[in-house]
Design a protein around this nucleic acid. Structure first.
Lengths: 148, 148
DNA sequence: CAGTTGTATTTGTTAAAACAACTGTTAGTG
DNA sequence: CACTAACAGTTGTTTTAACAAATACAACTG
């Protein structure tokens, strides 16, 4: 990072390019393992898995992942087509679906998780716990400054 | 961020969602100002502007922005269609184009820049210079760990 | 209880991402 | 010089992003 005034605070590019590299690396490893899912499908799979006790709506998934509703609809279409997730009508609100994983979906989660964890570890390298807390604090702060 | 072991180091989501919010916010402000460009078009516009002395190839733009060559081809198609950029045959290599901005492209850059800068400032808020250096160090480190 | 407002999801469209396959040009090797 | 490999860019296809508009249902208001 230079001290060129027009570059200072040009952190957008860095976040963006770093995230792109992470996505590319993760996608490649998922492909290599022949898991037949994309990174975005993994992200939804992960969120569904973690909230499976109650079942989760598409809108909730959209908000958590910062995707919009149509995007979530289409990714879930793909997950359903692949037999990894299913839509159950919510009994108290017929507009809503409760999304859950099928047995195959849970298996997929468990197959993919170690790969994701490995990329995380590799990316983090030997950065410290202190770094982690600072990093999270800054990201949260940017997030809140932008949305707030 | 919880201390749940399965969540620790789940920094991918945070980078991803923060970047999405930044993009959404910036896109909205570009739209509000009726600048008629997307965030990705802005990113290319910015990189072309900053390397305009020598003229830059599509491949170089692809590498800098971590987009692949077809994506760059198509975004430049759009910039050219909008009259913001132009392709000049490189005189010493007929495979290559030197991409540069038109007068309208430079005007667009100057019109959009304050908006981008404002979103940057808003996102950064009152985080410190020290934070900035740490943030950049960590992002660079992750980038290198992933690609290296 | 009719009418409005709000919510959950889907469909249509344009832009962008990434891979594969292709054209055309350059460089290197025998 | 012919042959091959490497390089720059384009085209085709599937997935994701995001807006707008539509459908269907729920909740509120008078």
């Amino acid at each position: 990072m230079t001290t060129n005034p027009s570059d200072s605070r040009a952190y957008f590019f860095k976040i963006d390019t770093t995230m792109k590299k992470i996505r590319q690396s993760l996608q490649k490893k998922l492909d290599d393992a022949q898991l037949d899912i994309t990174v975005d499908q993994w992200v939804l799979l992960d969120h569904i898995y973690r909230s499976q006790k109650n079942g989760i709506s598409q809108n909730e998934l959209a908000e958590m992942t910062v995707k919009d509703a149509p995007t979530v609809t289409r990714i879930i279409d793909l997950l359903v087509k692949k037999g990894l997730a299913e839509r159950a009508m919510a009994e108290n609100d017929r507009r809503r679906f409760n999304i859950s994983l099928t047995a195959d979906g849970e298996k997929k989660f468990h197959d993919a998780f170690p790969i994701v964890a490995e990329v995380r570890r590799k990316g983090w390298g030997d950065l410290s716990e202190n770094d982690y807390q600072t990093f999270v604090r800054i990201l949260d702060s940017i997030y809140n400054n932008i949305t707030g």
